[in-house]
Nucleic acid binder design. Structure first.
Length: 287
DNA sequence: TTCTTTGTTCCGGA
DNA sequence: GTCCGGAACAAAGA
């Protein structure tokens, strides 16, 4: 579930609580995430201070005081939660009350002086990987990623050149992390609706005005979602247990058989599968 | 019981 | 070699 806005929210919350804090201890309850956590991981990070947390696409990048790194990907259901060490409870206590089974999926605990950072992941599709400063430059997860959609490098001139290299549906191009990095199924569906482009249209047949519109839609949607704390479907919470509200503004995602929200369109939201993923679009205004 | 859902990687066919 | 589509992966709720 977490796409770029949700990872961005997670980053901001974590920055507030654990940057400049030293990892005093690490407890691994379950090493079997998408990739098995390195048995040496604990020895490599304990006693190191987290000096920076940044985001690249859907990855969180932690820089340690010795110049080495670890990255965390939340997969589909991963979360990073902040707990108060002394009281042994989450900052927002209502969080546990509404999610009683959650503790079962707490896999890793990072212990700081006053706080605990918990990696929780129901489906265990996320992962944590350590890289020394030299290896990090060659990190296979990060090296092939496309442009950050909210950066100035993500502009019409560059995108119109790049898109010529793909011969597949525009939806699959947007889902392809080597083109634009960080978009997932929800935001791609929404962006294509806003720019009135059918998801199955070959990307080579998206003309210049449409591409401009699409680019603007992507940026607008991501910014709006970040402003609203991300989307909370299938229970995304930020690291303090708070929920986002962008899901209330979805125009097509999950709206199969509803009327198009464009007042004079008269179309119907259809659902098809593209690249194995649910795709929602209006049968009239997205051509 | 089977289907759906999510992001990424891997594999086979063109 | 390259590109693209689809399967696989885990787990839970409908």
């Amino acid at each position: 579930m977490p796409e770029l806005p949700e990872v961005e929210i997670t980053k901001k919350t974590l920055q507030k609580h654990v940057v400049d804090q030293t990892i005093q201890d690490l407890q691994i309850k379950n090493r079997n995430l998408r990739y098995k956590i390195d048995i040496e991981f604990k020895n490599k990070v304990v006693k190191k201070k987290i000096v920076n947390i940044s985001r690249r696409s859907k990855y969180l990048v932690f820089l340690l005081s010795d110049g080495n790194y670890f990255i965390i990907h939340l997969g589909m259901s991963g979360r990073l939660l902040i707990a108060n060490k002394k009281q042994k409870k989450f900052l927002d206590t209502s969080f546990y009350a509404s999610h009683p089974a959650i503790k079962k999926h707490n896999h890793v605990y990072f212990l700081f002086k006053k706080k605990i950072l918990i990696y929780n992941d129901t489906r265990r599709f996320g992962f944590i990987k350590y890289y020394n400063s030299k290896e990090f430059l060659n990190c296979q997860h990060l090296i092939n990623l496309g442009v950050e959609p909210l950066s100035s490098e993500c502009n019409f001139a560059q995108l119109s050149q790049k898109i010529k290299k793909y011969n597949k549906s525009i939806k699959n191009v947007l889902m392809d992390q080597t083109c634009i990095a960080g978009l997932g199924n929800i935001y791609v569906n929404e962006a294509l609706f806003l720019s009135k482009i059918h998801p199955e249209r070959n990307s080579l047949r998206v003309d210049a005005p449409e591409l401009k519109k699409l680019l603007q839609a992507i940026k607008d949607i991501l910014k709006k979602s970040i402003r609203l704390g991300g989307s909370t479907i299938k229970d995304f919470h930020n690291s303090e247990g708070k929920i986002g509200s962008f899901q209330n503004y979805f125009k097509v995602y999950g709206r199969e058989n509803e009327k198009c929200t464009r007042s004079r369109c008269g179309g119907m939201i259809k659902k098809i599968t593209i690249g194995g993923r649910a795709s929602f679009f209006c049968n009239i205004c997205q051509q």
